[in-house]
């Protein structure tokens, strides 16, 4: 058998991905996380009426929830079921930061946790900034702000 034939054979014999089941679970888990966010978003205005303020508090609360669930070893289990449903919400972002912080703390607070806390979150931050910069630059030029 030639390697190319074998590679094709591997593709044909991979265990089937439960696409429908995964998608459904991602929908449910992601949806529920957003619903929790909505509950917070609806309650916050009682003591923080400004729109930006309540959105900020909601996000902070979601990040706290994500970090706590990570600390107690729950979030990785949630992700086994929910997949993207656990990764896409901001709680997933918080999870990557907390998970990396806990993991690399063993190499010290400075060179371990300090250096590597954002190691997983970094692509999101980096490309978030790069893409936003290009978008904002183009829009500012078009609007004649600059």
């Amino acid at each position: 058998m030639r390697p190319q034939e074998y590679q094709q054979l591997v593709q044909q014999n991979l265990p089937p991905r439960p696409v429908l089941k995964n998608t459904l679970w991602a929908f449910v888990v992601g949806g529920l996380i957003c619903t929790v966010g909505q509950v917070i978003l609806s309650l916050v205005p009682f003591f923080e009426p400004s729109k930006t303020g309540s959105a900020a508090i909601t996000l902070a609360a979601m990040i706290l929830i994500g970090s706590l669930l990570t600390g107690f070893g729950v979030y990785d289990e949630l992700a086994e079921v929910g997949g993207a449903g656990a990764a896409i919400p901001i709680t997933g972002f918080a999870n990557t930061v907390t998970a990396a912080a806990m993991e690399y703390r063993r190499e010290g607070y400075l060179q371990g946790m300090g250096a590597k806390m954002l190691i997983i979150a970094s692509p999101v931050i980096t490309y978030g900034i790069l893409v936003s910069f290009i978008v904002a630059l183009i829009k500012s030029l078009i609007l004649g702000v600059l």
Binding site: I63, L64, M117
Partner: peptide
């Protein structure tokens, strides 16, 4: 928030 909470939990 991510950095502060994560450090606290760590």
């Amino acid at each position: 928030a991510s950095i502060v909470f994560s450090t606290a939990i760590t």
